[in-house]
Nucleic acid binder design. Structure first.
Lengths: 196, 196
DNA sequence: GAGGCGAGTAGACACCGTCTACGGCGATCC
DNA sequence: GGATCGCCGTAGACGGTGTCTACTCGCCTC
């Protein structure tokens, strides 16, 4: 009922979202998405001029869910009166948790070769989150005149951990597959040991 | 002369290496590589059972060049009597320099969806380098009982920086496109400020 | 009620990776 | 020395892809 009378644009994105989470990025063929949405392979063209733009819309959905997850985690930490260091902890865990829970979507979101306009518009949505992270970093490191570099370095570290985990590289290097000690090491390095 | 009588296997890999550096990963079609090597599209099958295995061989070449670059940079730093901190500096710069100089190859090397056996065998080649990096980290942080986690975290940071740079994400976040302050921030975070 | 237009269909097109039958050529063996 | 065998590259078929182009059908407007 309510799902059948959605317009096709929404149904296509929904089909893609389910497909990528269930089968992975390789399953996101234009014809396969159309099949799952119950239309012919020419139908998507009315709503997305090209395959890449459909994938970009799917990735946009993913960025929305990531933003929600991070904002939710931060709001939860903030309401419990956590300090900046602990809030960054929560954000980092939420980021890596999202990547672990949605590996296909996470891969798609950062596959700029698949996304239209190289995903610039998409990544723009993460800018507010970067700013709040920068504010928290400034709170932890009050002596920094410009916390942008430190924030970007920290963000790159989290992203690198997520990326390396998804293809088992660090299991090869570290032996274990537990991300926790690496995350702790990264956070300690950038922010100092967590106060207890 | 000497290049024509190489066996086709070598010529295919060479054609792929040049193709990926000149045009990018998307240009690495099986038929296109065969075209550049001057053979029909069925010929590669005699040497590589599948397209992915040919791409894996090309990526293997890339890992070899990366290993050479890193080993060369480290050897140079070591012969000038540099301390561990400075040698890590040189390794990090060599890593990011390779990624910047060979963006297409760098992308291919970490596109596990394109590489056979998910690249496990390939990444195994970087293990020795990881170990020397771990030894250097242990030298900088003698108090660590197990420097593996710290090393992996540092390596993830470098990889994240390289990855985020290749698709202009940090230019969006930081404004500038200069990687240097971010690299410095990351190294300082993990290793402490460089002694002068 | 007629006309127009947006949305979905169906087929063609070029290209892709894989598979298979075939041809040629050199090395091997009697 | 000539026949044979095996390897290597060729060429075409096959199913699949993304894109493009008629076409049809139904709703909305005038």
């Amino acid at each position: 009922m309510t799902e059948d009378d959605q317009d096709l644009r929404t149904r296509l994105v929904a089909a893609g979202v389910e497909l990528v989470s269930r089968e992975g990025v390789h399953a996101l063929g234009l014809r396969e998405i159309a099949r799952r949405a119950g239309v012919s392979h020419g139908a998507p063209r009315r709503h997305f001029p090209t395959h890449r733009e459909l994938l970009a819309a799917i990735a946009r959905h993913g960025f929305g869910r990531l933003t929600d997850a991070l904002a939710g985690a931060d709001a939860l930490a903030a309401t419990t009166g956590a300090d900046a260091r602990t809030r960054i902890d929560a954000l980092a865990r939420a980021y890596l948790g999202f990547a672990a829970a949605n590996p296909g979507m996470f891969e798609l979101m950062f596959r700029h070769d698949l996304l239209e306009d190289s995903g610039t518009e998409l990544r723009r949505t993460t800018l507010p989150l970067f700013r709040t992270l920068a504010e928290l970093v400034a709170e932890v490191h009050p002596q920094l005149t410009d916390p942008t570099a430190a924030t970007a370095a920290l963000w790159a570290n989290l992203h690198g951990l997520a990326q390396l985990r998804t293809w088992g590289s660090l299991r090869l290097a570290t032996g274990g597959e537990d991300l926790e000690p690496l995350l702790r090491a990264a956070l300690d390095a950038h922010l100092g040991p967590v106060p207890r």
